[in-house]
Amino acid sequence: MKNLKLYIPVFAFLLLAVFMWRGLYMDSRTLPSTLIDRELPEFELRTLGEGDQLVSNTDLPDEPFILNIWGSYCLPCLQENPIFMSAREQGLVPIVGVNYKDRDNLARDWLDINGNPFTMNIVDDSGRYGIDLGVYGAPETFIVDADGVIRYKHIGTINYQAWEDEIMPVVRELQSAHAASASASSGQSS
């Protein structure tokens, strides 16, 4: 019926309005990571403070760890630092740093002043490794499991809330899975 066709604009509009209402509460700026459940990209870079010696993926921890992209210029990184420091003191989880597009002396000074929560600090001064990681600005944080597979990415500052509600649950889960498989394989070998 012709009259029914006249109601199409109203319904189309209402549908649109519903989408837009939902859209208001969506975050359309934070890029989801394409690397989830994929292996950490290969690298061969030097570390901060160890001279020109190169490290690669094999030098990463054999247990689940956190990979944090940071720089001395980055104000939010300063805000994360205490949380990482306390994690280090408690031995919760190893934190590997990627010093992103920074200068060695500035980075070292920063660590001296604020404390060094990192077990290892990879230097990516050109930002090239950051591209492989899909980084677009510090701070960004990855959670990597024992096999070197990325399991989670957090973009932006990690505050206490995010640490407790987002990061640590994933870390604990990976750690218990790792412990389980470790005991399973050690059980087999005996």
Partner: peptide, 13 residues
């Protein structure tokens, strides 16, 4: 807009 389009649907004929 919803109101106007509804008015349209009803009154346009």
């Amino acid at each position: 807009i919803g109101g106007s389009l509804l008015l349209y649907a009803i009154r346009a004929p």
